[in-house]
Structure formats: structure tokens, C-alpha cells
């Protein structure tokens, strides 16, 4: 019973993701987020952080994994609330449209 419900959940998520990609909404959201983040200076802040990290590690020893591990939490935290709210709103309306179908 539990397993079937978990399966159902996963199926549902997969279906929604499929829908997001199929309609091109995911790509639009991604582009919107990128623009908003550059606009509000998120990218510059993160770049400054990157520089510190890279100087710490040495230019030769930087790997993508290290960077992702260092940068992603910071990046998540630095997203401004307004951007986050706007994006969530877009996602909710998308979900509502497709739930009503």
C-alpha cells in the first residue's frame, strides 16, 4: 500500500516534469530566473565568493565538484525573496492550469 502510494507520487512528479519540459515552461522559467538573478546581482556576489574559493584551493586544483559543493548552498541562500516568490507563483499557476485539466 505504502509502496504503491510512493510509486504514485513519483509517477505524478515525473508526469509534471514531463509536462513542464513538453510545454517549454521549464525553459521559460529557467530563462526568467537567470535574468532575474543577473539583474539583482546574485551572479556577481557568487562570483566574488568563487574567487575566494579558488584562491584558497589554488588555481590548478579547482574541480567542478568542489565548485558545485561550495557554490550551490551559497547560491541557494543568496536568491532574493522577491525572485523566489515570483518564480513560485509562476510554478503554481502552471500546476493549477494542468491540475484542472
Amino acid at each position: 500500500m505504502v509502496v504503491s502510494k510512493m510509486n504514485k507520487d513519483a509517477q505524478m512528479r515525473a508526469a509534471i516534469n514531463q509536462k513542464l519540459i513538453e510545454t517549454g515552461e521549464r525553459e521559460r522559467l529557467k530563462e526568467l530566473l537567470r535574468a532575474k538573478l543577473i539583474e539583482c546581482g546574485w551572479k556577481d556576489q557568487l562570483k566574488a565568493h568563487c574567487k575566494e574559493v579558488i584562491k584558497e584551493k589554488g588555481l590548478e586544483h579547482v574541480t567542478v565538484d568542489d565548485l558545485v559543493a561550495e557554490i550551490t548552498p551559497k547560491g541557494r541562500a543568496l536568491v532574493p525573496d522577491s525572485v523566489k516568490k515570483e518564480l513560485l507563483q509562476r510554478i503554481r499557476t502552471f500546476l493549477a492550469q494542468h491540475a484542472s485539466l
Partner: peptide
């Protein structure tokens, strides 16, 4: 449940952006 899914999608998108930025920097 819808709210949870929305949060998940948002987190996904932010992570995507971070990953793209990391590739760029690397």
C-alpha cells in the same frame, strides 16, 4: 502536495542555475 511540488521545481531550477554558473566559472 502541489505546494511541495512547486518548491521542488523551484529548487531544481535554482540548482540548475547554480550548476550552470559553476560550469561557467570552472
Amino acid at each position: 502536495k502541489l505546494e511541495a511540488i512547486a518548491q521542488e521545481i523551484y529548487a531544481d531550477l535554482v540548482e540548475d542555475s547554480c550548476l550552470g554558473f559553476c560550469f561557467e566559472v570552472h
